[in-house]
């Protein structure tokens, strides 16, 4: 069997196309990459609005910015159906255990975006009531700067997250750790 590469694979392409002289072409890939590809294009965020930033998050889903172009418009109110948590706003100490619990209720694999200055470091509200950075209580994948970040900034974060997911390493890591 003669194998001939007809597309040059780069790190972000999911499949490698090989031509087969007998019956057309063959697609080669790894299961991790395919799953990563699926996941990246169907991220379901959780409806987890905290403060001002949540309004910009809503704007992102609404008419003008239209998050559904990137496969992420299906906001789920239940953490059990979501795989992305967007911490959109200031997280208070009273809310912190609940946020942690919600995170734990999300099935694996899951990601967290910390949206805005408050969620990332306390922002202007470095007070007794606020958690100075959501990463004190949760693992955060992407930080979005701004107060509030523009919807485009959050969109950019989601696209970056998609790139990260497409590497497929999450699945492998999860299987190794025995998580489902």
């Amino acid at each position: 069997m003669v194998r001939e590469r007809i597309t040059k694979p780069d790190s972000s392409s999911v499949v490698e196309v090989l031509s087969n002289p007998d019956d057309g072409s063959i697609l080669l890939t790894s299961i991790n990459k395919v799953i990563g590809w699926f996941q990246a294009n169907s991220i379901w965020p959780m409806t987890f609005g905290l403060a001002c930033c949540a309004i910009e998050m809503m704007s992102l889903t609404a008419s003008r910015f239209d998050l559904s172009r990137f496969g992420s418009e299906v906001f789920r109110a239940s953490p059990r159906q979501a795989d992305l948590m967007i911490i959109s706003g200031r997280l208070s100490w009273k809310m912190a255990p609940i946020a942690r619990e919600l995170y734990e209720q999300m099935p694996f694999p899951k990601w967290v975006i910390s949206m805005g200055a408050c969620a990332s470091c306390g922002g202007v509200f470095t007070t007794y009531a606020i958690v100075h950075g959501a990463d004190h209580i949760l693992p955060v994948d992407i930080y979005v700067p701004g107060c509030p970040p523009r919807p485009e900034a959050l969109l950019d974060a989601i696209i970056k997250l998609q790139k990260k997911i497409k590497t497929g390493t999450y699945v492998a890591q999860g299987l190794k750790e025995g998580r489902r």
Partner: peptide, 26 residues
């Protein structure tokens, strides 16, 4: 209630009169 308690009133006492405008918008 109180899950979004931010301590804005306390913070006001530690910022000057102009800076406080920033917190109230939020």
């Amino acid at each position: 209630i109180g899950y979004l308690h931010t301590g804005i009133e306390k913070l006001s006492e530690h910022r000057n009169w102009t800076q406080n405008i920033t917190h109230y918008a939020r």
